[in-house]
Amino acid sequence: MFVLAEMKDVIRITPEHFHQSLTESITTLLNRKLANKVVLNVGLCIALYDIIDIGNSYIFPGDGSSHTEVKFRFIVFRPVVEEILIGKIKNCSREGVHVTLGFFDDIVIPVNALQHPSRFDETDQAWVWEYPKEDGEKHDLFMDSGESIRFRVTSETFEESLPTGPPGTECTIQTVAPYRIVGGINEPGLGLLTWWEAPEQDDGDENEEENGE
């Protein structure tokens, strides 16, 4: 779920930071620039891992700052497609179930990737898995917000986002999520953790496990 991404950048250090060591300023500036931001086709940047190489610093005419080429590695959240993740349900809507990991919110499980058959309960605003019982009746399994959910990452999309306008201006820019993950729970074992926790002693004897507490 986390990877290291190798990047290269030229860091501009303004003179008021010259009293700090070069590595310290570079670390601060890189974290300020990238932490909690999505880089296109890379993922959500979390924190600086290490600095591989610091090149020569240059000062250009008319600018007192130093410019240093840096090679570094950053911790990036980028789950592999097909990976199994555990998150919490943020909310449910007609489009599907929205899942959050706390630090990353743009995960959606579309209607066609829910357990089958499912229906949307308008009064509770929640998706319900109508689990068929052997006697032909249905057992309603609600997907309430806040519950832990296990899902499979099925696809990911990166969207180039526009820069936001200067603060205080009234121009409304449509905010698109720069990095979205589409998940699926239409496999046995996926869905709310509580659905699969119950002991399965009553179906077949091949599931006998030692209950090591």
Binding site: F2, V3, A5, E6, K8, N41, V42, I75
Partner: peptide, 17 residues
């Protein structure tokens, strides 16, 4: 800024924490 390697290594949750 330039990304030289998107996936240089995997980290497990424990390392990140």
């Amino acid at each position: 800024m330039e990304t030289t390697k998107v996936n240089a290594a995997y980290l497990c949750n424990y390392e990140v924490m």
